[in-house]
Amino acid sequence: QGRASSVVRKGEVVTLEIPPPSPSTLEPEAVPLNIVYNDADVVVAEKPAGMVVHPATGHRQGTLVNALLHHITDLSGIGGTLRPGIVHRLDRGTSGLLIVAKHDQAHAELARQFKDREVEKTYIALVWGIVQAGRRIDLPIGRDPVQRKKISTRSRRAREAITRVVEAEHLRGVSLLRVMIATGRTHQIRVHLSAIGHPIVADPNYGGKRRHPPPHLRIVQRLERPFLHAAKLV
C-alpha cells in the first residue's frame, strides 16, 4: 500500500481499487421543487432562494438534495453520501438552475465540462447604479485575509475569475443585468460587481444594503436575499 510521499519508479505497476459508493443516509423530503428538465442522464432543477444545495453543518434537512431524493430515484454516487449527483452549486440566497447527474458517467462528463469551461452560465442581477453592457471584469478573487467568511480581490491566494456584462437595462438608480461567467468561483458575481462599485441589490455581505435608498427604491431594499438568479445553462 502506497503513501502520499511514495516515489513511483520506472517499471512499477500501480493498482487502484475504487470502492463502490456508500449508500446515502439522507432522507428524501417532500419539498416542492420545479424540475425543468429530466432524462436518463441528468436532471435540471430550479433552486429557490434560501435553500441550501446539500447538507452541511447547520443544514441537515430541507436542502436541494433532500428534495431531489424525493422527486428523483436515481442520482450519481460520485458526490458522496451528502452530495449525490451534485456537480456545481449556487449560494443559499441565489435562485436558479442547477444541473444534477443521474449516474456516474454523466457526473464525470459534466465535471469535465465545467472544469474545461465548456458550460455557459448566465445570471440575472439587479445592481445599484448604472453599468454599461459589454463590460468585462477580470479580477482574481479568493478568501479575504481578514474576514474569512467573505471572498474578495485582496486574497493572497486569489484565483482567476472573469465576469462579463452582456446586457444592461438602465432604470432609475439601478441596472438590470444579464451576466455571464467564464469561471465559477465562490461568490464571484457578487464580489466582482461590488468591486467595481455596483453591488447587487440587497446583498448584505458585499455592500448591497443601502441605509438611505431613494424613496422609489425602498421596495427593493426590503428584499431578504441578493437579487441574483441563475437563468440559463448551455
Rank of each mutant, 00 (worst) to 15 (best):
V100A: 10
V100E: 06
A101I: 07
A101Q: 01
A101V: 07
H103Q: 09
H103E: 08
D104C: 04
D104Y: 02
D104S: 05
Q105M: 04
Q105I: 07
Q105E: 14
H107T: 04
H107D: 04
E109P: 00
E109H: 06
E109A: 09
E109G: 00
E109S: 10
L110T: 04
L110W: 01
L110K: 05
A111W: 00
A111N: 02
A111G: 07
R112D: 08
R112C: 06
R112P: 02
F114W: 12
K115A: 15
K115C: 06
D116I: 03
E118T: 04
E118G: 12
E118H: 09
E120P: 00
E120D: 13
K121W: 03
T122D: 02
T122G: 01
T122L: 06
T122V: 14
Y123W: 11
Y123D: 08
I124W: 13
I124F: 10
A125N: 04
A125Q: 04
L126Q: 06
V127P: 06
W128V: 05
W128E: 07
G129A: 09
V131A: 05
V131C: 08
V131K: 06
Q132M: 05
A133N: 00
A133Q: 09
G134E: 01
R135K: 14
R135A: 06
I137R: 02
I137W: 05
D138G: 03
D138E: 14
D138M: 03
D138I: 06
L139P: 00
L139W: 05
P140H: 05
I141P: 01
G142Y: 04
G142I: 08
R143A: 10
D144T: 07
D144W: 02
D144N: 14
V146P: 00
V146N: 09
Q147A: 12
R148F: 05
K149I: 11
K149D: 14
I151M: 15
I151C: 00
S152E: 04
S152W: 01
S152R: 01
R154K: 13
S155A: 15
S155T: 05
S155Q: 07
R156W: 00
A158T: 01
R159H: 08
R159T: 04
R159V: 10
E160S: 11
E160W: 00
E160L: 07
A161L: 04
A161V: 13
A161S: 08
I162C: 04
I162G: 00
I162L: 15
T163D: 05
R164M: 00
R164C: 03
V165M: 06
V165C: 08
V165R: 09
V166R: 11
V166S: 10
E167D: 14
A168D: 08
E169W: 05
H170F: 06
L171Y: 11
R172I: 13
R172E: 15
G173Q: 12
V174P: 07
V174I: 15
V174L: 13
S175L: 08
L176E: 06
L177Y: 03
R178D: 02
R178M: 11
R178V: 12
R178G: 10
V179W: 01
V179P: 00
V179A: 00
V179I: 14
V179N: 02
M180D: 12
M180S: 11
M180V: 14
I181P: 03
I181T: 14
A182K: 15
A182G: 15
T183H: 10
G184E: 10
R185V: 13
T186E: 11
T186H: 12
T186I: 09
T186R: 12
T186M: 14
H187Q: 13
Q188E: 13
Q188F: 04
I189G: 07
I189E: 09
R190S: 13
